[in-house]
Structures are given as C-alpha cells and as structure tokens.
Amino acid sequence: MLIRRGCRVFGLLLSRCSPSLVLSAVPSYRLSSSWYGVKRRSYWKYLRRSILGAPAPPYKRVAQTGDPILRGLAESVPPERISHPDTQALLKKMSHVLRSCGCVGLSAPQLGVPLRVIALELPENLCQMVPPDVRAAREMTPIPLKIFINPSLRVLSTQKISFPEGCSSVQGFSAVVPRFHSVEISGLNEKGEPTSWRAEGWAARIVQHEMDHLDGVLYIDKMDPRTFVNVCWMEVND
C-alpha cells in the first residue's frame, strides 16, 4: 500500500513537470516496461547499434511514431527511376513487409524512405477473419496487391463515414476516424505505367490513410480524441 501510494505521489509530481524534466527525473536504469511501457534495449543491441550504427532504409520493420521520417513530406519518384534496381528493391521490400506484418496498406516513409510510394492489399484470408456483419457495415472486400507511385487523390463522394482505425506506425492503439466514402487514386504502377482505381468503403479508407502518410500526417491528427484507446487495455488492467 505504501509503495503504491508513493508511486501515485511520484506520478502526480511527474505529471506537473515538463517532458524533459520527466525523463531526467527517472534514472535510465529504471525505465522499463513498468515505467510508461518503455522498452529497454539489451546491452548487446546497444553495443551493436554503437558499433554498426542505425539500420539503413528501407527498414525490415515499420517505423514508429516519433521517427521524424513519419512527419516529413515525401518526394516524387522521377519516372525514369522506377525501373532502377533500387526502386524495384524498395517495392519488393514494401510488399514483403506489408504481408509479413499483416498490414493492409504501407507507405515508403514507414520504411524510412521519403518517397511517394504506397502499397495496398487486403487478402481474402484477412477479410474472412472479420465477422460478416462488420464486413458488411464497413464495406470490406478483398483487394489484390496494388502499388501506386506518385499517387494523386480525387474525392468522388463528400460523404464521410466514421469507423475505428489503426496504424502499424502507432502500434497498439486505435481511434475512430472520419473518411470520405469513395475516392479515386491515380499514379504509376511498378512498371511506370499510368494506373487509376476507384475505391469505396474500407478500400477508400485504406487509400486515404496511406496518402496521408506521404504528407507526414497520421490518423491521430484526424481522429476523434475521445475514442483513442489502447487495444490491449483489458490485458494491461489484468
């Protein structure tokens, strides 16, 4: 009881401090999963980072909010560079990470590359994991792999639909976000050929979400803040 009460008092004091003061008030060796869920890096990982430096993009994992790359404005890909091995390697890595992480959409900035490239896919098996009534309400249908380079967006319907939405760059959280019901996305495909697609319902939501990433915008910038939740809150409380 005394320890718990002491923690409450300490937490209250920290809540009145500036962020920089909070970090300086807590010794680094105390920052663990019990302190704000901070993940500690093992000594060997620390040593490896010190010797080898940070991993080079494109990353093997999705960048998390806090990484400056997610707040920057992505640059267009010169059409003549689409066939270049580096660009093709990026597209291949995006497709691999998209599937290995169970994502339905991914942007190049999320892998540390500030280019205007997005990949979308909603496989049949992932679609079937959603209850039928939820699929119907959200207008969810399978989407074959689609890649758009230098995409542009046109709103087809100004009607906005609000549903819970998550992001692989804001892992563990969800919030209700309003999105246009139908849009058209145009750009170049992996071969440098012009392509366009009219998307509705959940597909339109995925398109708008990934387009936002290219402009340094996250769904938390557009969410209803009262609906922002930790999707594992029950497990945390247990």
Rank of each mutant, 00 (worst) to 15 (best):
T141Y: 15
I143P: 05
E121V: 00
V217C: 11
L126W: 11
T158P: 02
E184T: 15
E124R: 10
L120C: 06
V77E: 08
L115K: 06
S33T: 14
C7K: 15
K146H: 11
S15C: 11
S100Y: 03
R4S: 09
A25I: 10
K93I: 01
L156K: 04
S33K: 14
L52K: 10
L115P: 00
K146Q: 13
R41Y: 15
I206V: 12
M223Q: 07
T87K: 02
R16W: 10
L31H: 07
M234D: 14
D221F: 10
D212C: 04
Y46P: 00
G201H: 07
V231I: 14
V155R: 00
P68W: 02
E80N: 13
M1Q: 14
L12T: 11
I185D: 06
Y29L: 03
V229P: 02
T195G: 06
P19L: 13
W202I: 08
N125T: 13
K60D: 15
S50G: 09
P85G: 02
R138M: 05
E75G: 03
Q128K: 15
T65E: 11
S157I: 03
H84M: 05
L52H: 12
S50F: 14
E139P: 02
L73M: 11
V77Q: 06
L111H: 05
L2I: 11
R81I: 07
G172V: 02
L126G: 10
L214D: 01
V62S: 01
F163C: 05
F180D: 12
V117A: 00
D212N: 14
Y46I: 07
P194S: 08
L126V: 04
G102N: 03
H209Y: 03
I147Y: 05
L47R: 04
M1E: 15
T195S: 03
D238G: 10
G53H: 13
G53L: 11
R198K: 14
I69P: 02
P194F: 13
K191A: 13
A25G: 01
V9P: 00
A204Y: 08
S186V: 14
